[in-house]
Computed example of a mutant assay.
Amino acid sequence: MDIPDREFSDLIARAIARLDPSIERRLDSEPQAHLELAVLTNRAYEEAGRLLRSSVASSRAAGSSWEAIGSALGMSRQAAQQRFGHLPEVPPPDSEHRQLVGLTAFNEIDQLNVWGAHGWHSVSYGPMFHTVERSSTQWTHKRAVIGSRRARDLESKGWERIGTMWFPWIYLKRPIDLPPEPGEPS
């Protein structure tokens, strides 16, 4: 998708202005409003950086190489890997928690639902992994695009968000009123 620079800037500026609907009218008469705008813009800058890191991690989990990511972002493979290649620390598993690793955007929901049938539900996630926790009921998991109608519909139907978003996804879960299947998935 190729959005012209001016249109892109306008979309971002409108999004920032919507965070405080009163700011536009106050800019002509209140010096403090300019500082508030700077604070909102800085928050948007920090959030954009977090979204960029998350989308790069999502690209890696979907199978993109560092070469492809670097090329898409206008940098070398090495620069992309140095800037974005640090993975979060994964806590060690215990009897109530497991790490499902090697997950991709193409297999993670199926895997989570296999584990969910055995009474495990996701409690956190990151690039190519989910941390699952044991419970006394079955669970089902879904993924939706952040801010989409589907995400809103699922949440309005009682689906619980898991952790914080991983751009462009949010993950949701819901218990099923059935005892877990015996054993543990292989």
Rank of each mutant, 00 (worst) to 15 (best):
M1P: 14
I3A: 04
R6D: 14
E7Y: 04
D10E: 15
A17W: 06
R18I: 04
L19W: 09
D20E: 14
P21E: 11
I23T: 06
R25V: 11
R25E: 15
L27Q: 02
S29F: 13
E30M: 07
P31Q: 08
Q32G: 11
Q32T: 12
A33Q: 07
A33M: 07
N42M: 12
Y45E: 11
A48K: 03
R50T: 12
S54R: 08
A57W: 13
S59A: 15
A61C: 04
G63A: 00
S64H: 02
S64L: 11
W66N: 02
A68R: 10
I69F: 01
S71M: 09
A72H: 03
M75I: 09
M75W: 00
S76M: 02
S76T: 15
Q78V: 11
A79E: 10
A79L: 01
Q81K: 10
Q81W: 03
Q81H: 05
Q82P: 01
Q82N: 11
R83T: 08
R83I: 07
G85I: 07
P88R: 11
V90F: 07
S95Y: 05
E96Q: 14
R98C: 09
G102V: 05
L103M: 11
L103D: 09
T104P: 01
A105V: 12
N107I: 01
D110E: 15
Q111F: 00
L112K: 03
V123I: 15
V123N: 04
M128S: 15
M128D: 13
F129A: 05
H130W: 07
S135W: 00
S135A: 13
S135M: 03
T140D: 05
T140F: 05
H141K: 04
H141Y: 01
A144V: 02
V145S: 08
R149T: 13
R149F: 03
K157I: 01
G158K: 01
E160C: 04
R161S: 07
G163T: 13
G163V: 08
M165G: 13
P168G: 01
W169C: 05
Y171F: 12
Y171A: 02
K173F: 02
P175R: 07
P175D: 00
I176W: 01
L178R: 15
E181H: 13
G183L: 06
G183I: 01
P185V: 10
S186C: 07
